[in-house]
Amino acid sequence: MKNLANFFFEVGMLKRTPRTGFQFLGSGAESVAEHIFRTAIIGYTLARLDDEADVGRVLELCLFHDVPEARTGDLNYVNKKYVKADEAKAVEDLARTLPFGDHYRSALQEFAAAGSREALIAHDADQLEMILALKEYKDLGNRYADEWYPFAVRRLKTEPAQRLAETIWATDSSRWWFDDDAEWWVKGRKDQL
């Protein structure tokens, strides 16, 4: 039980581990945990759109894909030109302590290899999460988001993810909650309409 408690504390570190690429974008901030959460929701959705994908496996890959960053930190594309994190060691050191360590190790190896249908979907979910963040920052006025978008799109492997990226980029990120019921926005209560 002690190893599991330590694992949960380690995963909690991801709430305080920043995604570092946004410093180059010039705006925005998110933790690795926030990124993982939305990536898992996106992965679940993409897997449900695919009749042959194992939804549970996609979720597992999405949930674990950045857990090693609790030990290595998040290295953005600039950092990766100069710094090499020993992710394999980080994975192995944690896997040795977990009763499901073999499953954890296997998930990270499958994600890294990107050879299975589920791994491709998980990778696409990871990129779509970044595309969503870029769109949110673009809608708030960050002009550099347009420059980053084409590179993220080129990383997408599945056709549904590519179509979804186009839709995301054409959708106003702040309008999902705003409907056509103008009186609601004036009075705020349905019983007063």
Rank of each mutant, 00 (worst) to 15 (best):
115 G>H: 07
193 L>G: 05
188 G>H: 00
113 A>M: 00
53 A>P: 03
165 A>K: 00
75 L>Q: 12
90 A>M: 08
111 F>H: 15
27 S>K: 05
32 V>F: 08
24 F>Q: 04
181 D>C: 01
139 D>P: 02
164 L>G: 03
83 V>Y: 15
121 I>V: 05
158 T>E: 04
126 D>S: 02
182 A>L: 12
193 L>R: 12
177 W>F: 10
144 Y>P: 01
98 L>G: 01
98 L>N: 00
145 A>E: 02
16 R>E: 12
26 G>V: 06
147 E>V: 07
190 K>E: 11
33 A>I: 00
137 Y>R: 09
11 V>C: 05
74 D>K: 14
32 V>L: 13
180 D>M: 04
81 K>V: 04
134 L>H: 00
11 V>G: 03
138 K>E: 14
38 R>N: 12
139 D>Y: 07
134 L>W: 01
39 T>Y: 00
51 D>E: 15
132 L>V: 12
72 T>P: 00
40 A>F: 00
86 D>P: 14
78 V>Q: 05
178 F>I: 15
99 P>Q: 07
66 D>C: 10
78 V>G: 01
31 S>D: 03
156 L>P: 12
139 D>E: 05
117 R>W: 05
66 D>I: 07
146 D>E: 14
138 K>V: 09
5 A>T: 06
138 K>I: 04
105 R>K: 13
70 A>F: 01
41 I>R: 09
17 T>S: 13
37 F>P: 00
147 E>I: 05
47 A>H: 11
168 I>H: 07
138 K>L: 10
152 A>V: 04
57 R>Q: 15
154 R>Q: 14
163 R>A: 09
40 A>N: 00
51 D>A: 12
180 D>H: 06
64 F>V: 07
121 I>R: 01
179 D>G: 10
167 T>Q: 11
78 V>T: 06
131 I>Q: 01
41 I>E: 15
120 L>T: 04
141 G>Q: 01
148 W>V: 11
113 A>C: 02
69 E>L: 14
144 Y>E: 12
18 P>G: 08
61 L>H: 15
157 K>E: 02
162 Q>I: 14
42 I>A: 15
70 A>K: 09
171 T>R: 09
86 D>L: 11
104 Y>A: 01
46 L>D: 08
191 D>N: 03
40 A>G: 02
103 H>R: 14
71 R>T: 03
99 P>L: 06
15 K>H: 09
